[in-house]
Amino acid sequence: MQAESLPQHLGDASSQGLVLSPEHQAALQVSLELVRRNYKFNRVYLWGKVLGLGGDYFIVQGVDVDELKSRKTLYSFNCMDWKLLPPATDEMIARSMLIKGRFTGDPSHQYKKTVLRANNEDQTDQDTDIKVKEEERLTATIELINREAAIIPRGAFIMTPRGEVHKNRSFEGLSVTEAGKLKSYLHFTKPITLKKKSVLMQANLEESIDFLNSLEDDELKELKQVFWSLQFERGNKLVILRNLLWPGFTFFHVPDTTQFGFIYMGLGEKNMDFPFMI
């Protein structure tokens, strides 16, 4: 959620139990402007909070000209002092996902995991120790949540002929009818491969808007209606989408307005047992 609209957007997400203390809200409103100036960001977003045993990680993300490619992530324990996280790599994500259990709240903490790996020379399995620093696990978890859960309303962003992603100034919000459809929401992450559309669907697509995959393109098609929970609140004045694979992730949009955003407040653990719970 955008820093300038923090109090209002936090109010939209508060019905899901995602709240910040008045002290943290006040600190964020001051410090996020300083973050924007110090790091020369064009815009700063509050991403959320990862709960730890010894302390909670408050997460913000800053962007430059391109809203998608130039995103950088910072964390803080007190909402005042911020530290830049390194970019996550696929290898870092793969190693971090082997670690289970709560975050400790100590960025320097090192996890140790013993895994079995095949030895191609003598065709035997050997124990291998993998070490992962909590700071690496944190940035990997944030990146994975962004890839799998971060979403935007269709039309909220456009891609220019130069390939840059910008906010769409002509976006006026989804109608109440469109806001109730999963196809009206796009994954806000660069697609590895853009899913193919039927001839009928292609006729209704706009190249500058439909450059991302929609929720209807999710691989687990038989489960998409389940792990995306969509509901209206305040009559039809607010739509809420929750990702049940990442408990604590909430997206909100006020139909017929430009107000939308998402926030994550959770343990930083994916619900791997979800397919067996339905």
Rank of each mutant, 00 (worst) to 15 (best):
M1P: 02
Q2H: 12
Q8Y: 14
H9V: 01
G11D: 07
G11F: 00
A13I: 01
L18F: 01
L20A: 02
S21Y: 06
Q25R: 11
L28P: 08
L34E: 15
N38H: 13
N38F: 13
N38C: 10
N38A: 12
Y39T: 05
V44Q: 02
V44K: 03
Y45R: 01
D56F: 06
I59D: 05
V60F: 05
D64S: 13
D64K: 12
E67V: 10
L68Q: 09
T73P: 06
Y75M: 04
N78A: 09
C79I: 06
M80T: 14
L85E: 04
A94V: 13
R95C: 07
R95W: 05
K100H: 09
G105I: 04
H109F: 11
Y111D: 08
K112A: 11
K113Y: 04
T114I: 14
V115G: 05
R117V: 14
T124H: 10
Q126H: 10
D127Y: 13
D129E: 14
V132H: 03
L138Q: 07
L138Y: 07
I142M: 05
R147D: 09
I151L: 01
P153E: 01
P153K: 03
A156F: 07
P161N: 06
R162P: 08
E164C: 09
H166M: 09
G173I: 08
T177Q: 15
E178Q: 14
A179T: 03
K181E: 15
L186S: 08
F188G: 02
F188N: 02
T193Q: 15
S198I: 11
S198M: 12
M201D: 15
A203K: 14
I209W: 08
D210H: 06
N213T: 03
S214A: 06
S214C: 04
D218H: 04
K221D: 13
V226L: 14
F227H: 04
L230I: 04
L230M: 08
Q231V: 00
R234L: 14
N236P: 09
L238H: 00
L238A: 02
L238M: 03
I240D: 00
R242T: 00
N243W: 01
N243K: 01
W246A: 02
H253Q: 03
Q259W: 05
Y264R: 00
M265F: 01
G266Q: 02
E269L: 10
F274N: 01
M277A: 11
